[in-house]
Write a protein that binds this DNA or RNA. Structure first.
Lengths: 220, 220
DNA sequence: TGAAACTTTTGAACGTGTTCAAGGACGAGT
DNA sequence: ACTCGTCCTTGAACACGTTCAAAAGTTTCA
């Protein structure tokens, strides 16, 4: 059985994620995880170099689930507003069990040195997967999105999604009702806003926004 | 001299801020601060309940300086784009000495429980001061901003400012050149974008955006 | 089988932020 | 001068994340 090692790793990860969900980030100490999993502290560190890496495990799992659920939800919707709603709502859905954990997660994720940093190298795969969801939401929509927007839009929407996630973390309303409202309100607005790109004066501004985005992105 | 106590407090704060600037957040341990200030660790805690509160001290100081510098810069500029630039550039100016400290600061600031959280209660004063800067930038601009926007715009701009600050933290270009470019590019775009509010079709979308903002804000 | 090499596991130890009981300093009232 | 009460200060102690030398277990190969 080559899986003995993998088994321990999974055990630690499972216990950690369960504890993150049930008692939060701070109360889930490495010692508690080890004890609950029946291993030594050092052994947990043999598989995960830091507590942050256990958070990364969670991040990846949540992203994977989002990809699956969102793809399914997208099957039955055509218009951009609806597709955007689908992606955002499913995103919130998969995060829901971890809401109380949210602020600690974001505090961890936001430091550039963290493996969970959504802009960082260590989560390139997760970010690409997430971006792919938005690309699919945009590309598959009908009526189609203006061609000049199609390239950059997914990335901008993903960025907006990060904003929604931030809002959700702070959202103390029951069941994060306000976040749902925000999504329901913002998605159609974004779609309508984009359709304004055809108006000459407005189109110019759009072009400049895209130009700025590209400039700032390139010049590293 | 009733100021003996205040003197110790200031000493600790000054030493801490200096160390934050010079060696960063993590290397500035409470023990190191205490030693450098010539007091005991416990004594530092008598004045500051946590390391976070020392960060708050920094936050307040930076905000205060921003208010002064921005007000001065606003005196000589009339148009909205210019005024926005002035406020944002001075904002980055005052933060500059703390750039390496930035990500730790934000990681601290972003948790709702932190005294430095910009949305939280403990920094109501600092937030109001910051908001006032943006209100002044909007209200004092000529040509005037559309009336229907004038009420909510400062808050939205402040929010955008938080975004700029986040961008700045991640900006590794020398002297944070990219952030400067972003400001120079975005400020005129915002001004031009707002002037589109007069166009009937666009105005509707603007109204809905404002409506959404209000809805989401009220429903707590 | 046996020994060498590699993988996995252990728990004590380190430095951190934070707490707290104990004591010192100092002024007010007698 | 004495004592009470308040403010200030101390440093040992705690739990935490993390490290690491050493031990235990497992595989490899002759």
């Amino acid at each position: 059985m080559a899986a003995k090692s993998e088994q321990t790793r999974q055990l630690v990860a499972d216990v950690a994620l369960k504890m993150f969900r049930e008692i939060g980030f701070e109360k889930t100490t490495m010692r508690a995880i080890a004890q609950e999993a029946g291993v030594s502290v050092g052994n947990a560190y043999y598989y995960f170099a830091s507590k942050d890496e256990l958070v990364q495990e969670l991040y990846i799992q949540v992203q994977d689930e989002h990809a699956v659920v969102a793809a399914q939800a997208l099957e039955s919707v055509q218009d951009l507003a609806g597709r955007l709603k689908a992606v955002l709502h499913t995103g919130v859905d998969v995060m829901a069990p971890y809401h109380q954990f949210g602020s600690d997660f974001i505090a961890t994720a936001i430091r550039p040195s963290s493996p969970v940093n959504p802009f960082g190298e260590a989560s390139t795969a997760a970010r690409e997967a997430s971006l792919a969801i938005f690309r699919s939401a945009v590309d598959g929509s009908s009526p189609a999105v203006a061609k000049k927007l199609r390239g950059d839009l997914p990335e901008l929407l993903w960025l907006a999604y990060m904003g929604v996630a931030l809002f959700w973390v702070y959202d103390k309303s029951e069941g994060q009702r306000r976040t749902r409202k925000l999504i329901d309100g913002a998605a159609p607005l974004v779609a309508r806003g984009l359709s304004l790109a055809k108006i000459p004066g407005v189109g110019k501004v759009f072009d400049d926004v895209l130009g700025l985005v590209r400039t700032v992105k390139e010049d590293s």
